[in-house]
Simulated assay, not measured.
Amino acid sequence: MVMSAEAWGLFLVACLMLNIAPGPDLIFVLSRTLGHGRKAGFAASFGVCSGAMVHVLAAALGVSAILATSATAFMLVKYVGAAYLVWLGIKAMLSREGMLQIEGKHKPGATAWSIYRQGVLIDVLNPKAALFFMAFLPQFIPHDGSLSALLILLDTLFLGAIVIASGLLVEAGYIMLAAPLGTYLRNNKTIARRIDRLVGGLFIGLGAKIALTD
């Protein structure tokens, strides 16, 4: 793909700033890192990034336009996604053992695969992520007739992959910083329970915000 150095610089800076900003994805990655360690954090990160890749593919194929033009489709995905976040929050707040796995104990349902699936769902069920990729990526692709439909599709996938790769790098940094703190928290039951309530409240709040925001 041909872009000027200035355009590449703007694109990469935008990617970095967008991925640093806190949101449901980052909160989920951090909560799983604190609760279950570095491996779980990376499983969560790969999950949300896989979900993001679904949105990139949908934007490249024009499927995301359905959400932009159909109020019914947008509201359906929005409310299902909001409900899923609220459910995760309630689950964290009401869990007897808590979200944070105490060292030496195995917590059922906290496998890397289950965490990965949760991450995928959190991102796929976020309609604003779909609209973001649909609006953001085309700004860096010429639509003056110089590119064929196939090249536009491939360029959209390529730029989307860069956005997701930068997200992986940013989240990896957060995971590496949060993992040692998680080790300490998992050995302190009182603090662990408080973190459970805090994270649960954040997910419930995010779900409510998504449901109530146009």
Results as ranks from 00 to 15, higher is better:
residue 14 A to C: 10
residue 45 S to I: 08
residue 84 Y to G: 01
residue 120 V to C: 10
residue 88 L to N: 01
residue 63 V to Y: 08
residue 29 V to H: 07
residue 100 L to Q: 02
residue 30 L to H: 07
residue 61 L to M: 14
residue 37 G to D: 10
residue 36 H to N: 14
residue 54 V to G: 08
residue 76 L to N: 06
residue 72 T to Q: 14
residue 85 L to D: 02
residue 101 Q to G: 03
residue 70 S to W: 07
residue 105 K to M: 12
residue 30 L to P: 09
residue 43 A to F: 01
residue 48 V to K: 05
residue 54 V to S: 12
residue 77 V to I: 12
residue 120 V to M: 12
residue 19 N to V: 12
residue 75 M to L: 15
residue 72 T to C: 11
residue 31 S to G: 12
residue 88 L to R: 00
residue 26 L to V: 14
residue 55 H to A: 04
residue 70 S to I: 09
residue 57 L to R: 06
residue 13 V to E: 10
residue 27 I to R: 04
residue 86 V to T: 05
residue 96 R to D: 08
residue 107 K to Q: 14
residue 65 A to Q: 14
residue 16 L to T: 11
residue 71 A to F: 11
residue 81 G to V: 00
residue 74 F to M: 07
residue 51 G to Q: 08
residue 60 A to R: 02
residue 44 A to W: 03
residue 102 I to K: 15
residue 90 I to F: 11
residue 95 S to G: 06
residue 118 Q to Y: 10
residue 34 L to T: 05
residue 108 P to G: 08
residue 97 E to F: 02
residue 67 L to K: 04
residue 94 L to D: 02
residue 96 R to N: 09
residue 19 N to Q: 13
residue 14 A to P: 06
residue 100 L to W: 00
residue 59 A to V: 09
residue 84 Y to C: 02
residue 30 L to G: 12
residue 67 L to N: 04
residue 117 R to M: 15
residue 89 G to S: 07
residue 116 Y to P: 03
residue 49 C to R: 11
residue 86 V to Y: 00
residue 26 L to H: 09
residue 46 F to W: 13
residue 118 Q to E: 15
residue 78 K to P: 00
residue 106 H to S: 14
residue 86 V to R: 02
residue 77 V to M: 13
residue 47 G to S: 07
residue 66 I to D: 06
residue 82 A to P: 01
residue 88 L to T: 00
residue 37 G to N: 07
residue 54 V to Y: 12
residue 115 I to P: 07
residue 63 V to A: 11
residue 74 F to G: 07
residue 33 T to S: 12
residue 47 G to Q: 02
residue 80 V to A: 10
residue 99 M to P: 00
residue 99 M to S: 11
residue 79 Y to V: 04
residue 117 R to P: 06
residue 43 A to W: 01
residue 72 T to D: 15
residue 115 I to L: 11
residue 56 V to S: 11
residue 117 R to D: 06
residue 13 V to D: 09
residue 16 L to N: 09
residue 101 Q to D: 06
residue 107 K to V: 13
residue 82 A to Y: 02
residue 93 M to W: 09
residue 20 I to Y: 04
residue 59 A to G: 06
residue 26 L to M: 15
residue 113 W to M: 14
residue 19 N to D: 09
residue 119 G to Y: 07
residue 96 R to F: 07
residue 61 L to R: 09
residue 49 C to Q: 14
residue 115 I to V: 14
residue 24 P to S: 05
residue 108 P to K: 00
residue 72 T to V: 15
residue 71 A to K: 13
residue 20 I to Q: 03
residue 46 F to L: 15
residue 114 S to C: 08
residue 81 G to E: 01
residue 30 L to R: 04
residue 50 S to R: 12
residue 22 P to I: 11
residue 43 A to V: 01
residue 65 A to H: 13
residue 88 L to D: 01
residue 99 M to T: 13
residue 66 I to V: 15
residue 77 V to R: 02
residue 21 A to C: 11
residue 93 M to D: 03
residue 16 L to R: 05
residue 42 F to L: 13
residue 36 H to D: 14
residue 40 A to G: 06
residue 40 A to L: 05
residue 92 A to W: 03
residue 39 K to W: 08
residue 116 Y to K: 01
residue 40 A to W: 01
